[in-house]
Structure formats: C-alpha cells, structure tokens
C-alpha cells in the first residue's frame, strides 16, 4: 500500500492446526481465569451435590435397599458423580450464551484466530473445571461412608470416563448456548433434557425395581450406561459391556454434537 508505513509486527508463522490448538489454549485460559475470579460459582457447583448426598444418604437412603451385600451409599456416590458432572455441562450453555451476547464476540470474530477456538476454549475450560469438582465429590463420598473396592486403576478409569463423557455432552450444551436467546433461557432449556436422563437412570435407585419398559431405557441411555460403568469400576464389580457402551456413547455424542455446534457457530458468524 502507498500509505505511510505504520510500524507493524509480523505474526508468527505456524500451521493452521497448530494455530487452532494455540487459540483454543488461549480461550481455555480465559474460561479458567473466569472461574478463578468467581470462586463462588465453583463453590455453589459443589453445594448442590452436597445437598443431594445428604438428602439421599440420610433422608431417602434408609428406605432403599440395594441388595447384593451393598450399602446404599455405595450405589449413591457414583450416581452423584455422574449427576454433578452432567449437570455441570449446563455451565457451558450459560457461559457460551453470555459470550455471544456481549460485544466481545464481535472482537473475536474480527481477529485472525481459529473459528473453533471460542467453542473449544469454553468446552475445554469446563472440562478442566470438572477435575477439582470430581476430587471434592470423591472426598465428600468417603466422608459419608462410601468405600470403593475397585483398584486405583479402575477408580482412575472411571473418573476419566466420566470426564470424557462430560466433555462430550458439554458440546451438546454448547449447541443450546448458541441457539438460546439469552443465558437465562439457555439454563431453562437445559433442564428438561437433564432431568429425565439423570433421574431415569440408576443414579439414585437400583434399576432392578423399575418397570421393565423404563428399565431398558434407564440401563442403556447415555447417562444410565455411564452410571453403571462408573459404579462397577469404582466398586470393583464385573463391568460387563457398560464401559464399552459408555465409551461408544461418548465418542458418538462428541462427534455429533461438535459437528452441529461448529456448524451453528459458523452460521452465526
């Protein structure tokens, strides 16, 4: 150009994929900084499962007899794990919706950053946030009498499976965040999906007592399968096919949700 030279700075040169990763990392950092700035949000993320633990352990728990020589608390805590991480995915919908309705999204779109970074940064940040949440729930469980008999390896595997699943559905909630008119609605839109999946599962009660039509659903729907695999791994019981089922659900949901989410983000942009 013929304009007097503005002193410019040359951008680094890297491959497209390397930039997508680097931009995703920058945006993940942004999500995580936000969590550290509002520790209340994380605190209250943990209050809800605590209430559920107390409610089910001490109020309803006495009336539920799982049989098979198990204590109800052993059934409950893996269920709480699943419920907390699945419910936590609503945060993705809310956070993304908030981002989209602030001017900052226009700034991001006008930057030479990867298009995927806004979504990747949000979902990955929420995944990282789930790690301390999982640890706290585990400790909370131990405190109320949860005794996992599975090996350390199995417990770690269960946690990894949980985190992977939560990452996959986080992308599903990203779609809600992208389509909801505002963050309050995003939150409201999330619950009709979460409730049937979480409660029509073995998370809080053994599925054996459910009517057969419900039991089939409760055992094999994505959250239900995850409850079974988490529980068997943590308790050191035979895991059967549930672990593979959960893994398959996670991979499939991640593939479908991320494709749809990226597509609807592009449409908006």
């Amino acid at each position: 150009m013929t304009a007097p030279a503005v002193p410019t700075i040359a951008p680094l040169s890297r491959s497209k994929l390397a930039w997508a990763v680097s931009d995703g990392v920058a945006m993940t950092k942004r999500t995580l900084i936000a969590y550290t700035r509002i520790p209340e949000a994380l605190f209250f993320t943990l209050v809800q499962p605590l209430m559920f633990v107390l409610l089910f352990r001490y109020v309803f728990g006495g009336a539920i007899h799982p049989g098979g020589g198990l204590q109800y608390v052993d059934i409950l805590i893996p269920g709480i794990f699943v419920q907390t991480l699945v419910f936590g995915a609503v945060g993705t919908a809310i956070g993304l919706s908030e981002d989209l309705h602030k001017g900052v999204i226009d700034r991001f779109r006008a930057l030479p950053m990867a298009r995927s970074a806004v979504l990747a940064g949000r979902t990955t940040g929420d995944l990282v946030k789930n790690v301390p949440v999982a640890i706290v729930i585990f400790l909370m469980g131990l405190l109320v009498g949860f005794r996992p008999h599975g090996s350390i390896v199995n417990i770690v595997l269960a946690t990894l499976l949980l985190l992977f699943f939560s990452y996959a559905i986080s992308w599903g909630f990203a779609i809600i965040g992208l389509t909801a008119p505002n963050s309050e609605t995003a939150q409201l839109m999330s619950f009709p999906l979460l409730f049937p999946l979480t409660f029509a599962s073995g998370a809080f009660a053994p599925t054996e007592t459910m009517p057969s039509w419900l039991r089939g659903f409760a055992d094999h729907q994505p959250v239900g399968a995850l409850v079974h695999s988490t529980r068997s791994l943590m308790l050191g019981q035979p895991v059967g096919s549930y672990v593979w089922e959960s893994l398959a659900w996670s991979v499939a949901l991640l593939a479908i949700f991320s494709t749809i989410a990226v597509r609807s983000y592009r449409k908006i942009a």
Binding site: I9, P11, L12, A26, K29, R107, L111, P112, M113, A117
Partner: peptide
C-alpha cells in the same frame, strides 16, 4: 489475550 489471538509472539 488479544495479542495472542492475533498470533503475535508472547514476549511482544
């Protein structure tokens, strides 16, 4: 953050 998303070096 904006600098990083502009793909500029970290020290810059």
């Amino acid at each position: 953050m904006i600098a990083r998303l502009n793909h500029l070096p970290l020290d810059f």
